[in-house]
């Protein structure tokens, strides 16, 4: 509780001057993020060492002037000087240190590689665990994007289908229209044929009646006198024919 309070007060104290500083120096500098001179720090590989702990750079510093053996010569020379002048005093702890050094040397050469392998594997495990959630989220998002794309593709297919269905409906409408037009044509033709036949029939009947009437009247109008004249005429004609 108190520690949290203390932290909060520290944060409160810190925020104002920092903000002021930020504002103050923003006027001096351009105020833009300088990525070239101040890149985001990256986690690098560990620095190289020789003999277990001495930085490689120190050896490189000697290398230009004295070659490869120079730093070792310097080291041995320095140690000899320190021992010789008893600046480094070889008292009892020195021999304890030697035995401890032998033990550490033995342990680090014997178990070091195995331990390093195990620890590297653990580091990888931890990293994999930490990344797992992020990676699975990314994967699920990618999957859902792919699903969305497929759904869009399907929707396009659906549009095509609807287009085809509309065309189909139009075709059906056209067919129905043609069918009805044909029906209308046939019906009209049937009626016209009926009218034609009726007219013809009526005319035939009228003709027949007229002929009957005329024949009847004509027959009625023929007198026995005329009949006799005709018969005589016929006989005369026959006689004339017979004469020839």
């Amino acid at each position: 509780m108190f520690s949290r309070l203390a932290l909060r007060s520290v944060a409160a104290r810190q925020s104002t001057p920092t903000a002021l500083v930020a504002r103050g120096s923003a006027t001096e500098v351009s105020g833009l993020r300088d990525e070239k001179n101040f890149p985001r720090p990256v986690r690098g590989e560990p620095g190289k060492v020789r003999l277990g702990f001495i930085p490689e750079e120190w050896f490189q510093f000697f290398h230009a002037k004295t070659g490869v053996t120079g730093p070792y010569t310097f080291g041995v020379g320095l140690a000899t000087y320190l021992f010789s002048k008893e600046i480094y005093v070889m008292e009892h702890e020195y021999y304890t240190g030697l035995s401890i050094f032998v033990m550490i040397y033995y342990a680090s050469t014997k178990f070091g590689p195995k331990l390093a392998e195990f620890l590297d594997k653990e580091v990888d495990n931890v990293e994999t665990n930490w990344n797992a959630g992020r990676l699975s989220t990314i994967k699920s998002l990618e999957d859902s994007i792919a699903g969305e794309k497929e759904a869009q593709w399907r929707a396009q297919g659906q549009e095509l289908l609807i287009e085809a269905k509309k065309e189909n409906v139009l075709l059906q409408l056209e067919a129905a229209y043609r069918e009805r037009a044909l029906t209308a044509y046939q019906e009209v033709k049937r009626r016209l044929d009926f009218q034609l036949e009726k007219t013809l029939l009526e005319r035939r009947i009228a003709q027949k009646n007229m002929v009957d009437w005329i024949v009847a009247n004509v027959t009625k109008a023929i007198t026995p006198d005329q009949e006799k004249q005709a018969m005589d005429r016929c006989i005369a004609d026959l006689a004339a024919l017979a004469k020839n």
Binding site: V21, A22, S25, G31, F38
Partner: peptide, 10 residues
């Protein structure tokens, strides 16, 4: 004092 988050980043 010289550190400016806007310019220097993290």
């Amino acid at each position: 004092k010289e550190y400016n988050p806007a310019v220097h980043g993290p």
